[in-house]
């Protein structure tokens, strides 16, 4: 009875276990414990939350493995970490220290302007961002086991998260109405592998778990994304840039579970203190937008 490791089933399987949950950005072991106590299903270990990466400017790289290891030691839930788009050596390092998921993330400065990492040979699973169905299926084609819509990280403005989720889910709704002979032209139009287009049509959803990310700052934001049809949410700067992180984190967890119950949403939204200040997407020059990174 031989055991098989690192199969696509076990890579996708961990993402399935995270469904209906909240994954929180943390920059210290103390943050990680607050997140776990609040009910996070996983944490994203990094040196700076996206709002600070935005404010600081400069090149944003993989975090110090020492910090990631300390966070891994401090909680029992899965720990994710980010590498730069196309930086397969950062990914090798993250796999070597044993993180549970790698986020090949546009929040960091891309290392390759044409190619993403070939994710198939890795034992550790990857999550990747997308703005539309074509981008999602290209990432799955490269071996991503989980997808998140990008939104616009570090802004606290949910508008881009909504745009990207509507784009992916709307394109799937359109795909489901197409005739068989129209599928190849559709695959060409969105720049996606034909086989994955067919699989998506047959499943009626992405062939991987799909979370929302980028700009979620309140329990209502999380429930909005869930009602639009995503499987769970990432909250980056929205928690630890707010006035009362522990309380806000717990409220967002509850809102993600009870996303269809406005009475519970009203209850958990009360007295949360100051939300993160936020930055309107419309006020950001196009060249500073993060979501456009990735190809």
């Amino acid at each position: 009875m031989e055991q098989q490791v690192a199969t696509l089933t076990v890579k996708k399987g961990l993402a399935q276990m995270l469904k209906g949950g909240v994954i929180m950005d943390v920059v210290t072991p103390e943050h990680a414990r607050i997140a776990e106590d609040a009910g996070a299903v996983a944490v994203m270990a990094l040196e700076r939350v996206p709002a600070d990466i935005r404010a600081d400017g400069g090149v944003a790289r993989m975090s110090d493995p020492e910090l990631i290891l300390k966070i891994m030691d401090s909680v029992s839930i899965p720990v994710m970490a980010k590498c730069r788009i196309g930086h397969f050596v950062e990914a090798q390092i993250l796999e070597a220290i044993g993180v549970d998921y790698i986020d090949e993330s546009e929040v960091l400065t891309p290392a390759d302007e044409a190619h993403h990492i070939n994710k198939h040979p890795f034992k550790v699973p990857f999550v990747c961002g997308c703005r539309n169905l074509g981008e999602a299926l290209r990432r799955i084609g490269e071996g991503a086991a989980m997808i998140r819509t990008k939104g616009e990280a570090g802004t606290g403005d949910v508008v881009e998260a909504v745009r990207h989720a509507r784009s992916v889910l709307g394109e799937i709704r359109r795909l489901k109405t197409l005739a068989e002979e129209e599928l190849m032209a559709f695959a060409k139009e969105i720049g996606a592998p034909y086989e994955l287009v067919v699989e998506t049509r047959d499943l009626g959803r992405l062939p991987a778990v799909n979370f929302a990310a980028g700009g979620i700052a309140t329990p209502a934001d999380a429930a909005l994304m869930m009602q639009l049809g995503v499987d769970g949410v990432f909250v980056g700067s929205g928690i630890f840039k707010s006035g009362d992180p522990a309380k806000r984190a717990a409220a967002i967890v509850k809102a993600t579970t009870h996303y269809n119950d406005p009475y519970i949403l009203a209850e958990v939204s009360r007295n949360l203190g100051e939300p993160m200040v936020g930055r309107q997407i419309a006020s950001i020059p196009e060249g500073e937008l993060i979501a456009t990174r990735g190809w």
């Binding site: 009875m1 031989e2 055991q3 490791v5 690192a6 076990v10 961990l14 899965p78 034992k123």
Partner: peptide, 16 residues
């Protein structure tokens, strides 16, 4: 015992 086999890279399939 939680996570008895280790972290995600040790997740596996087996016949029982």
């Amino acid at each position: 015992e939680r996570n008895a086999f280790g972290r995600q890279v040790a997740s596996f399939e087996a016949d029982l």
